[in-house]
Design a binder for these strands. Structure first.
Lengths: 255, 255
DNA sequence: ACTATACGAAATGTCTGACATTTATTCCAG
DNA sequence: CTGGAATAAATGTCAGACATTTCGTATAGT
């Protein structure tokens, strides 16, 4: 839709970054189709009653994350979802702040986790230091602690993210570590969609603890299996199945 | 080193992005230690004879990639390498343009490839479309074509990157696809370090072709094995070994 | 002597208005 | 109908002033 700037969003009073967040959320929500021209700077200035400077800084952030492409004389166009920098931490923040996450993105990110995270757990089991273990355990304790009260869902999600992020960290590879930031959107989406599932929490906590135990005992195989079980439950809760095709890795049967 | 702005780099005449590249290269080369204060805007303006606007835009890019952190009143400090956004495509470009890449980064990126890429090849063997195959083959032909002439090293590197990138694309997952952009630096580094190795090119081409054949025949296991062989040769050329520990993934033997 | 408050220097953040540059369109001559 | 120059519209850049945050310092009070 060539949605005019009027419809999508109310004005904003925060700094430049707040404006960027507002616009990013609009794009992530699919307000503009790929290839469509974005509103001009002038109009954005007017609509948000912001200086051109703030608008330009905000647009620069969007451009830096691959959401839009700006060329002098032509204007600003929204880029295809394939060109978005999904691994940009800022992007993860934007996605996590979205109330209704882009369905395709959630599926894609989760499919990635499904394939990669068991392997990361293997690495963690081999490379984790005492500090790493402490971090993982601390997150686990936080999850258990905030599990009872349904009013502390947000806190619980934070600890959940911290748990998995700590595992990525424990791989002791900078690249894998960066990917831990991808988790937040998918976990937040999970929490939102599965809150009505009763009693699944105890089960989830138990599975998480098994991952921790396996890593603590330096048992890569067990860590991989336990992580697969955690993700399998999550996949079921999210209704994701293992979307396209391969669950984790085809041992020997191609089809 | 509290290297003054004098020493590191000659002035620049390009746009704002060019300046960002210059500064990024300086940081990636380790001219400033982590936590150290970066030169003030004023000094950068003077040294590069650039307007404050360009300097600010450049610094904003660096900040967006996690290289620096700016806070009003305090100044600009260089962030720790652990906080750099290695998966930001811009970062890959900067690293690729560096004549002497950061040794730790090359090792980390390659360690990541070593662990992940065989798996990506499995995915590609399962999900590749005809178009994907065409893309991979085209890159392979380009590699063969430019292999003979040592003066076309750059072109050869481009085709090499295109080959591996096409495989990441063929996984048909947006997250893995984004990671294909990580390859350029490590491949460029490889080309620079292995140009004196005679006769290794034919061998390398043959291994690449085997990867392609396996994907074309929809054989995930063969694709994984072939990719492992490609990377093993690359690792040997780079002198990386498989640094920390795990080569690809312990099928059943933990050690 | 020590603490607490107030002041001021120094850095980044923001606003404003003008001008430069690139791109697509339009209009006119050939 | 085609080619090219003028024009309009968008983003990119510059310059200067002002606002805001932070830290150090001086000063007064206890």
């Amino acid at each position: 839709m060539t949605t005019l700037s009027q419809l999508p969003l109310p004005p904003d009073a925060g700094g430049a970054q707040a404006l960027a967040t507002t616009l990013a959320h609009a794009i992530l929500s699919g307000k503009w189709a790929s290839g469509e021209t974005f509103p001009r700077e002038r109009d954005l200035c007017e609509h948000f009653s912001a200086s051109r400077n703030r608008v330009r800084n905000a647009l620069a952030e969007l451009s830096g994350s691959g959401l839009i492409e700006r060329t002098a004389g032509r204007g600003t166009v929204v880029r295809d979802i394939e060109d978005w920098h999904l691994l940009d931490p800022q992007m993860s923040e934007w996605m996590a702040g979205l109330e209704a996450p882009h369905p395709q993105l959630v599926r894609e990110v989760f499919a990635f986790r499904l394939s990669a995270e068991p392997f990361v757990s293997e690495l963690a089991a081999l490379a984790a230091t005492g500090q790493d273990l402490a971090r993982i355990e601390s997150a686990l304790v936080g999850m258990c602690d905030s599990a009872a009260d349904p009013a502390r869902r947000e806190e619980h999600a934070d600890h959940d993210v911290a748990f998995h992020d700590a595992i990525y960290r424990a791989s002791h590879n900078l690249v894998w570590r960066q990917m831990g930031l991808l988790l937040r959107p998918s976990i937040v989406a999970l929490i939102q969609h599965s809150h009505h599932q009763a009693g699944s929490l105890d089960d989830s906590l138990e599975r998480h603890r098994q991952v921790f135990d396996a890593i603590r005992l330096r048992d890569p195989e067990a860590a991989r299996d336990a992580t697969e079980r955690v993700l399998a439950r999550t996949a079921a809760d999210l209704g994701v199945e293992h979307g396209t095709r391969p669950l984790t890795r085809p041992a020997s049967l191609p089809d």
